[in-house]
């Protein structure tokens, strides 16, 4: 029993702390709760790791390596190993993050998030030529990965090299759920959540479904249709119009629907 347990977990050292972690986890995933802070922009626990922002670099040393030899890796993409040593805030790491922030500040000079992070690391002004743009997209692909996760694949990175940009090639695929805009680390996706029953994002306008009784916004027409289809695919026979009364009561403040509960005279049949 104990043998199987040890094979599923590994032991490593992060900034001098002994940590037990599940096999296959990334270094960044095991740091919460340890009191170490690794900055990251493109990482999200629910999405595939991507390694775009390079801010989460850490220094590692594997067992058997010479004492002087260390390597820089992105912690969001590096799996934990038995006997691994990790330094998250050494001089080498901080120097690397400074270079990354210097480059990011040149790329997106208008971003407050990058400027605040730069101030934390002592980079107040970029040493490179600033790109003349108001756009704050850092090409981290978090919107692309999120859109893939919810099953739409509407967003894609277009073009190559320095001209690369993120856009929605097929406007019909976008359902106006705002997941991409809410996850974006630099708030680079402009949107209007609710403007007189209309929602605008990615240059497309959506009609919002509002409940007549409570006035609560339920989402766009396309969004509700997508969730209904997804629920059907998963074998959940509970579309919007078949929901239990309790959902209606809460959503619509519609208590009369439940009045039949009071009419139940017989106790529920006992299970034997």
């Amino acid at each position: 029993m104990s043998k199987t347990k040890t094979s599923k977990t590994v032991h490593l050292t992060i900034d001098g702390q002994n940590v037990e972690a599940p096999k296959g986890a990334m270094i960044l995933d095991v740091t919460p709760g340890l009191g170490v802070e690794i900055p990251s922009l493109c990482a999200h626990p629910g999405l595939e790791p991507f390694g775009a922002c390079r801010l989460c670099v850490v220094e590692i040393q594997k067992p058997g390596w010479d004492d002087w030899y260390k390597q820089l890796v992105t912690s969001c993409l590096f799996q934990v190993e038995e006997g691994l040593k990790v330094w998250t805030n050494s001089d080498e790491v901080r120097q690397n993050r400074k270079v990354v922030l210097d480059l990011l500040m040149a790329r997106v000079p208008a971003s407050d998030v990058i400027r605040d992070l730069g101030n934390q690391y002592g980079v107040t002004k970029t040493s490179y030529a600033e790109v003349d743009t108001e756009d704050t997209c850092i090409m981290c692909d978090i919107c692309v990965r999120a859109c893939h996760a919810i099953g739409r694949d509407a967003i894609a990175s277009m073009s190559r090299g320095p001209d690369k940009y993120v856009d929605v090639p097929d406007k019909d695929a976008c359902i106006g759920c705002l997941v991409c805009a809410n996850l974006c680390p630099t708030n680079a996706i402009p949107f209007t959540a609710n403007d007189n029953g209309k929602r605008r994002i990615w240059g497309k306008e959506f009609d919002l479904v509002t409940d007549e009784r409570s006035g609560e916004v339920l989402g766009t027409t396309e969004y509700i249709e997508h969730v209904r289809k997804r629920a059907e695919d998963k074998g959940l026979l509970c579309p919007e119009d078949m929901k239990h009364e309790s959902a209606r009561v809460k959503r619509y403040g519609y208590a009369q629907k439940l009045s039949h509960v009071a009419d139940v005279e017989e106790p529920i049949e006992e299970v034997k």
Partner: peptide, 17 residues
């Protein structure tokens, strides 16, 4: 848990609200 990306599908799917 922290894997939530905020798509809100669960709110729509729960039959009991």
């Amino acid at each position: 848990n922290d894997r939530c990306i905020g798509c809100g599908f669960c709110v729509q799917a729960c039959p009991f609200g």
